[in-house]
């Protein structure tokens, strides 16, 4: 499968690694992150990407205290094979 250059920035939040603190949601300039209705296995309402509007600014990445809950993909990123970029 050929890799494709990302044309729209994107963000993923790993539900099981999110503590639901809400700092990314508070920080997000285009306001495209929100609490999910569901709980993760720890009992937190985790954050999730609404699916469009991410500018790839990376603000949420630094607002998030968790090491790997959030990944931000900027425009021009070339995903690895099998990598899911939301």
């Amino acid at each position: 499968m050929a890799t494709q250059v990302l044309t729209t920035p994107s963000v993923t939040v790993e539900p099981e690694l999110c503590k639901g603190c809400g700092l990314c949601i508070d920080a997000c300039p285009p306001d495209v992150l929100a609490f999910h209705k569901k709980f993760n296995s720890k009992g937190y309402h985790y954050a999730f990407y609404l699916g469009e509007g991410c500018t790839g600014c990376g603000v949420c990445f630094y607002a998030c205290p968790e090491p790997e809950a959030i990944v931000v993909y900027k425009k021009g990123y070339v995903p690895e094979a099998n990598e899911e970029v939301a």
């Binding site: 503590k19 998030c64 205290p65 090491p67």
Partner: peptide, 18 residues
């Protein structure tokens, strides 16, 4: 083994990451 021990929203996580 994947989630640090800090409380939700604790600043240590941000500093660690930086």
């Amino acid at each position: 083994k994947k989630m640090p021990h800090y409380c939700p929203g604790c600043g240590h996580g941000n500093v660690h990451k930086m």
